[in-house]
Design a protein around this nucleic acid. Structure first.
Length: 930
RNA sequence: GGGCGGUUAGCUCAGUUGGUUAGAGCGUCACAUUGACAUUGUGAAGGUCACAAGUUCGAGCCUUGUACCGCCCACCA
């Protein structure tokens, strides 16, 4: 029974929380009030946003709403958006890399959900076969058990692993929720649960029946420490120092060879030379038999093979077919037999001869080397750097050796749509045809580099934790007559009928089941509604480091089994590094735990820190300061809302105000809002999340909070502007809360509640914009803003107390009317008591001046103005203006520039020149006046 | 050995098909602060865009080369 160790329990239903949010006690009392709010009903918002006080409750509310499940979403939603969560390994807890993935994916799915799509994001975990089993084994050994597998036996050992996996799973689920992930828990899957086991078995059987899966006796990567085979990509190369010996097998042998592993030479079957190598041509085809070598006897054939580099070493390669993957290939081409001299325990076996039998390879290496020395066979001995193959999980030194294993063929041909295809060509075509788009595009190269060299994939593992190979064997033969006449094989989704069947002991590589993930989670092989609606999935978002491990395999297996791609797009994020760019690791002690960050700064700030400042495919450097900085922003957003809600009120939020009768500032902020919406949406559609976030932050903080809110305070003192100003404040607040939601779901949903909105923000429509801007208002407001900023700068320059009112005279030419119309803003925001604005105003005695584009500001500061300092400053400004004018004039008098540059560029430059000249003459006037 | 990135302010990074006097956040400095917010406000300083040559009217951006840093693949036996 393969299901005995399958984990089925997934998740208890969320209990309905007995706690009642105090805010909800107030809000139902908010009827449709007349325009002026009743202050006593205003929400009582604390001064600072405390994430810990809201996040868990908000998440529970979302879960209870059922909106994570697309079947429950309101309205008619036709277009699907689907995504699978790359299942985290049940080996422990989530790290910042997982947090990044959750932040980006949740952003994607919330955005699409708000845009009215049938949005589905499927959660799940990966049993991570070798990784989990070795982790549990290690823990048991640390706990005092010497040989856990031996002591416990298969069933009890698996109980331990499953227990650990369950605990890990619970932790992971909790962490996903803490991050605010809007995952549809009702569809949660596990790569090793009963349904996925069925999928795996069906897939295995189909591929076996089609000849894509086969069993073969071949040289594989053996991990003597983990006691299992591993695939090529589970190998990590480490540089170690080694001795390269050059020697002859015997005095009479005509060719010398080199090796760093003399002990394997007792298994040599041939010497390979390049066919073009004149030195050895005469020996090709000859066999030298009965060579006494290190206590045994070997027989060496000289073969010619193109893969041998005549320039390297002696130009001859000793072929050890059983213990080198390359040699195995050569042996295969020349029909040499595999002579296994190293056993699965990593020691030399009987075949290796009495001199080394039973010794470890390391011991044997010394023994054979001394034997060679004694015999005087060594011609050279030198130190080199060798890339030692080690197993990713156990750290053991990988020993290539021949073994009967299960493989998936990359090159077996089959018919696909009337054409010949292989797994390799299917995988290549998926990306080449554009059916799968990889973002960033440059990773397509890495994809092809891997796929073009796709080799047969060894999928069987000698571990217990995993999907057991769905193959049964039975000895065939008449009892009592001949033993083991043959073996009968049965491949199926469950055990065959009849007696004597024994299931294959091995389990499958964990990537076999994860390769089926996009459709195993949707009910395949049944033709479910989910599969029809949501497959192929819209996008796969994952780290670039598992492109080859996982993405390639998903494309291979899905295109083969389903005849369609697993996803339309792959979006790859970078790795999270520390502030110095180092990988986060336990040994460096630089790990930032996402849960710590959430506890300290909130989930929203943590998410934002992983999204802002990171671009597709590039690593993110994370520091606690960055998270803290973004926590400040969440608090800013909270306080913006607090201001609007407590002073203006919550009514009529979201209703677009009438444009008539509004001020320049009103027109400006509405225009900026339109621009912000269209830019944000465009960036989100292009998956440029950092740019979207920065656009929003810029608008929220630098435009809405710093300028419009301050102006609103002034406008609200004017009874004729009160209603329209409030309407604007509400509308824009409502808009930014929606815009921010996919980035910062908790604080925005909390504010939404404070606003007294009935439904939940999670399903509100995302703002849209025609992109129509009021360019006149933007330009005019820019002038007003620039006047205010200039006055503030002058004050700061002369250390005038911010509260103190000053006198200002502005000479503004054609812009005098505009500034006059906004004089009250200038007075209040720049703290000007007596303000004179004229087309051409004279400079008062003893004043300092600042020249802007189209205006000059004078501030009389009797006795305070340092004339020498003023002169230096103005001279400096004149110098830079001259330099600019000279450069620009040079360009404009250059016929080639005027002739070849686009008209628009030339016209812009002329306008800039005129502006600069105007400024220069104004500066010169100022200098003279001094 | 093959390939892919990167090098822009003290730090972390943007910079869209080449076109204003290169931007942001953090940090720094100065000033301020009981009415949304010190998790704040206002203002300022700070850059030969790694280096060299080339293409172009024009280069942070394109080409070639050099240097340094990081990663992936191969595994020379």
């Amino acid at each position: 029974m393969s299901s005995q160790f399958v984990m089925t329990s997934i998740l208890p239903p969320s209990p309905i929380s007995p706690t009642v949010n105090p805010i909800q006690l107030i809000l139902p009392n908010l009827p449709n009030l007349p325009n002026l709010p009743n202050l006593s009903l205003m929400p009582d918002m604390p001064k600072a946003y405390e994430p810990g006080a809201h996040e868990d409750q908000v998440y529970k509310d979302w879960e209870q709403s059922g909106f994570f499940n697309p079947d429950n979403l309101p309205g008619e939603r036709k277009e699907p958006f689907s995504m699978v969560l790359p299942p985290p390994n049940v080996t422990g807890t989530l790290h910042m890399g997982h947090a990044t993935m959750l932040a980006i994916q949740d952003l994607m799915v919330r955005f699409e959900r708000m845009r009215g799509k049938k949005a589905l994001w499927i959660p799940g975990t990966d049993h991570a076969a070798i990784a989990t089993q070795s982790k549990v084994e290690k823990l048991l050994i640390e706990g005092g058990m010497k040989s856990p597998r031996h002591t416990l036996g298969r069933e009890k050992f698996l109980d331990e692993v499953n227990k650990f996996a369950q605990e890990s799973h619970d932790t992971i689920v909790n962490q996903c929720k803490k991050m605010g992930s809007s995952l549809d828990w009702s569809r949660e899957a596990y790569t090793l649960d009963a349904e996925r086991n069925h999928t795996v078995n069906v897939a295995f059987k189909k591929m076996y029946d089609d000849g894509l899966i086969y069993r073969g006796y071949r040289v594989i990567n053996w991990d003597p420490l983990g006691q299992t085979t591993i695939s090529d990509i589970e190998i990590i190369y480490k540089e170690v120092e080694a001795t390269l010996y050059t020697f002859k097998y015997s005095k009479d042998f005509p060719i010398a060879i080199s090796t760093t592993r003399p002990e394997t030479k007792v298994g040599d079957m041939a010497v390979a030379v390049n066919p073009k190598d004149a030195r050895y041509k005469q020996f090709v085809g000859m066999t030298f038999g009965n060579i006494p070598f290190a206590g045994t006897t070997i027989s060496i054939k000289v073969v010619a093979d193109d893969s041998v580099d005549p320039e390297f070493g002696t130009g001859a390669l000793g072929v050890t077919p059983a213990h080198s993957l390359i040699d195995a290939d050569i042996a295969d081409r020349h029909g040499l037999t595999l002579k296994q001299v190293i056993g699965e325990d990593g020691r030399m076996n009987e075949v290796a001869g009495p001199l080394v039998a039973g010794k470890t390879t390391k011991e044997a290496r010394e023994i054979v080397a001394s034997w060679l020395k004694e015999q005087g066979l060594i011609e050279a001995e030198e130190k080199t750097i060798q890339n030692l193959a080690t197993a990713e999980r156990s750290g053991g030194t990988v020993e290539p050796l021949p073994k009967l294993q299960w493989f998936i063929s990359a090159s077996k041909e089959f018919d696909r749509d009337g054409k010949k295809a292989t797994l390799k060509t299917l995988t290549q075509d998926a990306v080449r045809s554009g059916k799968v788009k990889i973002t960033p595009e440059r990773f397509e190269k890495a994809y092809f580099q891997w796929v073009d060299n796709l080799r047969d994939w060894c999928i069987s593992r000698q571990i217990w934790f995993g999907h057991r190979v769905p193959v049964w064997y039975r000895k065939v033969g008449k009892v009592g007559e001949v033993r083991e006449v043959g073996e009968e094989t049965f491949v199926g989704t469950s055990a065959p009928e009849g007696d004597g069947w024994v299931q294959d002991e091995d389990t499958l590589d964990t990537w076999f089941s994860s390769g089926l993930w996009t459709f195993s989670t949707l009910g395949w092989p049944e033709k479910t509604n989910d599969l029809k609606t949501f497959h192929p999935t819209s996008v796969l978002e994952t780290g670039y480091d598992i492109l080859t491990f996982w993405v390639v395999r998903m494309v291979s297996m899905t295109t083969y089994l389903l005849g369609e791609v697993p996803f339309k797009e792959v979006y790859l994020h970078g790795l999270v590094r520390d502030e110095q760019g180092r990988k986060m690791s336990k040994s460096l002690g630089n790990i930032i735990n996402p849960l710590d960050m959430i506890a300290k700064y909130g989930a929203d700030a943590t998410r934002l820190s992983l999204v802002i400042g990171s671009t597709a495919g590039n690593d993110v450097k994370l520091s606690e300061e960055k998270v803290a900085g973004l926590r400040n922003f969440t608090n800013k957003l909270w306080n913006i809302s607090r201001f609007v809600l407590t002073t203006v009120g919550a009514q009529a939020l979201g209703v677009r105000p009438e444009a008539t009768g509004t001020t320049l500032a009103d027109r400006w902020i509405m225009s900026r809002f339109e621009e912000t919406v269209s830019k944000t949406v465009r960036f989100l559609e292009n998956k440029d999340y950092s740019a979207a976030g920065e656009t929003l932050r810029e608008f929220t903080w630098s435009e809405f909070a710093d300028w419009y809110l301050e102006i609103a305070k002034i406008q609200r003192t004017d009874a004729t502007l009160l209603v329209s100003t409030d309407a604007n404040l509400r509308f824009i607040l409502n808009g930014i809360i929606r815009l921010w939601h996919p980035f910062m779901p908790f604080v925005t949903e909390t504010i939404w509640k404070e606003m007294g909105e009935k439904g939940m923000l999670i399903i509100e429509p995302y703002p849209t914009s025609s992109g129509a801007r009021d360019e006149e208002a933007e330009a005019q407001f820019e002038t007003v803003r620039s006047v205010i900023t200039s006055i503030r700068a002058m004050r700061a320059d002369y250390k005038v107390e911010p509260a103190k009112e000053i006198v200002a005279v502005i000479s503004a030419g054609a812009q005098a009317e505009l500034l006059e119309a906004n004089a009250s803003l200038i007075r209040r925001l720049a703290r000007v008591g007596e303000l004179t604005i004229a087309a051409d105003a004279a400079k008062p005695e003893g004043s300092m001046s600042a020249v802007g584009t189209g205006f000059t500001i004078h501030i009389p500061l009797a006795g305070l103005v340092d004339m020498a300092k003023e002169r230096t400053r103005i001279e400096g400004e004149i110098a830079s203006a001259r330099k600019y004018i000279d450069g620009t004039e040079a360009k404009l008098t250059n016929k080639e520039f005027v002739g070849k540059a686009p008209e628009k560029v030339v016209a812009e430059m002329r306008a800039k020149l005129a502006e600069a000249q105007l400024k220069l003459s104004a500066l010169e006037v100022q200098l003279k006046a001094l």
